[in-house]
Nucleic acid binder design. Structure first.
Length: 358
DNA sequence: AACTCCGTCAACCGCTTGTTG
DNA sequence: ACAACAAGCGGTTGACGGAGT
């Protein structure tokens, strides 16, 4: 260490490259190859340091560089690669022909990171942000939503707002319930670490269920309208979150305990949207816990495979080419869609991600 | 028209890694 | 084993242009 920088020479030009400089660099490399970058500027007649020349060539002048807007496939691939590799831009660039590490890095920081944030996904962990501190705001929000009915705003607008707000809140609660239940097993220290939210411990299952019931009030009763008359005006309003008893990803160990079984059964019973879907499937509205149907995952699935340090054993074997290679695949696996849904789970994710974020 | 704010992206900086003598 | 060097890498900066006021 302690090596002096290569560009400390006084009088070496910095800043944007001129077309003339570009031409000199391209001509030289075409004729001689770049060879030793340190000697290149002198040989090519450029008043630049070798490092600057190398960067200009690799990030801009190289003939195989694909410029222009990133395609949706490229976006998805970058998100997946980032979930697996983290900020290894150069490794990501090897998977995206024609794209440079610098370009991918910039695109991530200026577009994709924000997109994920807008979707409520933590761009570092690639997990949904179960912001339980926000849940603390739900009771006053619910009260405010109910008070909306007293305002003079057009009824239809009020209903839309209430429906959207309630569905959004319900989604948040569902997510939190899944996480809460998933860490009930004392064996699952990993899940606790992954969740890493101190405030989570402060929330009781019953608190969340109570909030869901309150939401039902907003959805169904606050304005004296049956639920099927609440206007469905947006993607969120159309969302149902059914079929939890079949697809709810409880922990295998906890499912073998009375506590685990009771919790899942209680959860299913308590959620009206669960009953809604089960009826449509011809199943009992009071589900019997079926240990044969216990799914496998034991924490809230990540929208893409997890960060390197969180990767599963399978993913560690071949994380980049893992079959769980598309964003949302794990969540899609939850099969939260029901046959009578206005909007499928996948549609919902697509809608809030690729359209609203852009 | 003038100014400010903000997003984008090329380029730079400094650290790490790999190679060579 | 060590030092010196080149190349690679990722975080950050700053110029630029467009949008908003």
């Amino acid at each position: 260490m302690g090596r002096s920088p290569c560009c400390d020479k006084v009088g070496v030009k910095k800043g944007p490259w001129t077309p003339e400089e570009d031409r000199k660099l391209v001509d030289y490399i075409h004729n001689h190859g770049h060879g030793n970058w340190k000697n290149l500027p002198q040989n090519a007649g450029l008043n630049r340091c070798g490092k600057s020349c190398r960067l200009r060539w690799t990030n801009y002048l190289r003939p195989d560089i694909k410029r222009g807007k990133f395609s949706e496939d490229e976006e998805r691939l970058i998100i997946h690669l980032h979930s697996v590799l983290g900020n290894k831009w150069s490794m990501m660039a090897t998977r995206l022909p024609g794209r440079t590490d610098n370009e991918i890095k910039n695109y991530w920081n200026t577009h994709l990171r924000k997109k994920l944030l807008l979707m409520g996904i933590d761009p570092v962990t690639h997990r949904p942000k179960a912001d339980l501190d926000l849940l603390a705001m739900l009771p006053p929000l619910l009260a405010a939503a109910q008070n909306l009915g007293n305002l003079t705003a057009p009824l239809d607008n009020v209903l839309r707002l209430q429906a959207d707000a309630a569905n959004l809140a319900r989604f948040q609660i569902l997510q939190s319930l899944i996480q809460l239940t998933s860490i009930t097993s004392p064996l699952d220290a990993d899940a606790r670490n992954l969740l890493g939210s101190a405030s989570l411990q402060n929330y009781q299952f019953s608190d969340l269920l109570q909030m869901n019931h309150q939401l039902e009030g907003v959805m169904d009763g606050s304005l004296g309208l049956p639920q099927n008359q609440i206007p469905v005006t947006s993607g969120l309003s159309g969302l149902r979150i059914p079929q939890l008893s079949n697809s709810f990803q409880a922990h295998p160990e906890s499912s073998n305990t009375l506590e685990g079984q009771e919790m899942v059964a209680k959860f299913s019973d308590s959620c009206s949207f669960t009953e809604h879907a089960m009826e449509s499937n011809g199943q009992s509205t009071h589900p019997v816990f079926n240990s044969n149907a216990i799914p496998t995952s034991h924490s809230t699935p990540s929208l893409v495979s997890t960060s390197p340090e969180h990767a599963s054993a399978d993913q560690k074997q071949d994380p980049i080419n893992s079959t769980a290679s598309t964003p949302f695949e794990d969540w899609e696996g939850l099969n939260l869609d029901g046959p009578d849904n206005d909007l499928s789970w996948k549609d919902f994710l697509d809608q809030i991600s690729w359209s609203s974020a852009s």
